[in-house]
Amino acid sequence: MENILIDKLDQLAIITINRPEKLNALNKATILELHEAFRSLNEDTTVKTIILTGSGEKAFVAGADISEFANFSVEDGGKLAAKGQELLFDFVQNLTTPVIAAVNGFALGGGLELAMACHFRIASTNAKMGLPEVTLGVIPGYGGTQRLAQLVGKGRAMEMIMTAGMIDASAALHYGLVNHVVEQAELLSFAKEIAAKITKNSSAAIAKAIEAINANFEDGTNGYQVEIKNFGACFGTEDFKEGTTAFLEKRKANFK
């Protein structure tokens, strides 16, 4: 791994995008490394939560590496978006291990799209977020037009994308784009506190909940039916036996 760092702390993994000289901009190599990191951590049964952040104090991810696609054709552009969504953005959204984005600075273009693909977001007070693609004569291609509207509503998404403007952490909190805003020095510790709360719960149930919540935003999918199916499936797990037994015995559950 040349562009990312991975730290494992008990049942928590922290992925840090480490290209500070490029403000952690996404290039093909970084996207591939992130895919591999998320894939391997998702398969690691000792990891129950993942935090994603950027190195340094300026940027989470300041965008995509424009030099890689400046001369692309129509066909090349379509393939770039499709491959990126498959390898990383859709992949992270559908990961069965919870992913928290700790947005520690600029999250622009592909950086905001990556943060929005995570299951939820925490921002530092200095964070700035936006989708400035129209200033380059292109639109967000890694799911930004879809996820931003889902998170902040159609009108605000239209305005943010059409003006290419940035919003600060306070506005992002007001819009519902992030769940919490804290001082930068407290960002990782705060994210770890939330991760610890998640870790205490059933990973099997959380995975089913992620799938059911995501189903509500999939065309042609009945989210209620997915919820019913996943609810029933939980009854066949060891976690369900442990959780209900612990409740009846008035003790804390010990999920394996």
Rank of each mutant, 00 (worst) to 15 (best):
K128I: 12
N222I: 13
E242Y: 03
S73Y: 14
G220E: 04
V182I: 12
R39G: 09
S202L: 07
E68G: 11
L136Q: 07
A172Q: 04
T96A: 14
G232A: 12
E159T: 08
A25I: 06
M162R: 12
V152Y: 03
N27H: 03
L136S: 04
E227V: 04
G165F: 03
L114K: 09
F38P: 06
T49M: 03
T96G: 10
I161R: 06
L41W: 05
I15W: 05
N18V: 08
F91C: 05
T221Q: 11
G77L: 09
K48H: 14
I228E: 01
N24F: 00
N222C: 05
A195W: 07
A171S: 12
G236Q: 12
L136M: 11
G137L: 08
V134S: 11
E186K: 07
H119D: 15
E159F: 11
T244A: 15
E227R: 12
A253Q: 10
L87A: 03
A82I: 00
I14C: 01
A102L: 03
S203D: 10
S73C: 13
G78W: 14
I15P: 00
L177M: 03
Q85S: 03
F60Q: 15
K252E: 14
Q11E: 06
G109M: 03
K128S: 11
E57H: 07
H180V: 15
T49A: 04
F69Y: 04
C234R: 05
G105Q: 10
A215W: 04
N104P: 13
Q150M: 12
L187S: 09
G130D: 01
S55I: 07
I139L: 15
A207M: 05
F217K: 08
G111M: 01
M160C: 06
V138P: 09
R121H: 13
T237N: 11
L88F: 02
L95F: 06
K192W: 09
